Simulated scan of single mutants.
Amino acid sequence: MADDSTIPFPSPMTPAAGRAEVFVRYLDFYRETVLAKAAGLPEAELRSSRLPSGWTPLELLKHLRFVELRWLEWGFQGRDVAEPWGDRKDDRWHVDPSESLADLTAALRAQGVRTTAVITGNDLEAVGRPGPRWAGDDPAGLERICFHLLQEYARHAGHLDVVVELAGGPVGE
């Protein structure tokens, strides 16, 4: 199957300056992969669900943006974030009707820029700052957070693969 993302898969054979660069490459790849898959769907498919769980592709994009925000800015950096759970309403993912694919794409890419800055600007051995993200637990280390973000993206990219295929959209790895 052809790859439908806008950037190539980060091959293990391509040299990297270090682990942080590897994490950034994979996160960029998965972020662009889910954006490309969503962009291949008509508006009606972006806002409807083909799954019993009820989530929509637009909700997934918004969720991924907030996952990065929660783990890196609110969690690791300990920043004050006005709405860390802004992707949720009534205990489920939510996208306002006024939010468009273009809006959510821009927000996810902008979050990716901030994610890259956090990952490349800190030692992967660094531990997050204490704060509300950790709910009283010890903060996680940056490398562990990066692994978590990668599994989140890989899992949700697979979910979106199924939804896009069911909708008759482009398929690929």
Rank of each mutant, 00 (worst) to 15 (best):
T33K: 11
S5A: 09
R50T: 14
L72K: 07
L69M: 07
R25F: 05
T14H: 14
E32D: 14
L46I: 02
A16G: 08
P8W: 02
K37E: 02
E43W: 04
W74F: 11
A36M: 04
W74C: 11
L72E: 08
G40I: 01
T56Y: 01
R70Y: 11
G86R: 03
G18L: 03
D80E: 15
V34W: 04
G54Q: 07
M13Q: 13
E83H: 15
F9V: 06
F9Q: 09
P57A: 03
W74G: 08
G18Y: 06
R31P: 12
L60H: 10
P84W: 03
D87C: 01
P42A: 02
P8I: 10
L64Q: 06
H63K: 07
R47S: 01
D87H: 10
P84H: 01
G75M: 03
D90M: 00
H63R: 08
P15T: 03
E32S: 06
K89P: 10
R25T: 09
R79G: 04
V81D: 09
P42H: 03
L60D: 09
A36Q: 10
S53R: 05
G54A: 00
H63A: 06
E21Q: 12
R79L: 15
A20P: 13
R65G: 10
W74D: 10
S53K: 12
W85H: 15
L61Q: 07
E73V: 09
D91F: 07
D90K: 07
T6H: 07
H63Y: 01
K62S: 03
P52V: 00
D90F: 02
E32R: 13
F66E: 04
R31N: 01
A82T: 13
D28L: 00
T56G: 03
L72G: 06
H63M: 00
L60R: 03
D91W: 03
W71D: 09
D91C: 08
E43K: 02
R79F: 08
L27A: 05
W55H: 15
R19C: 09
Y26R: 13
L35C: 04
E68V: 11
L46K: 07
G54F: 00
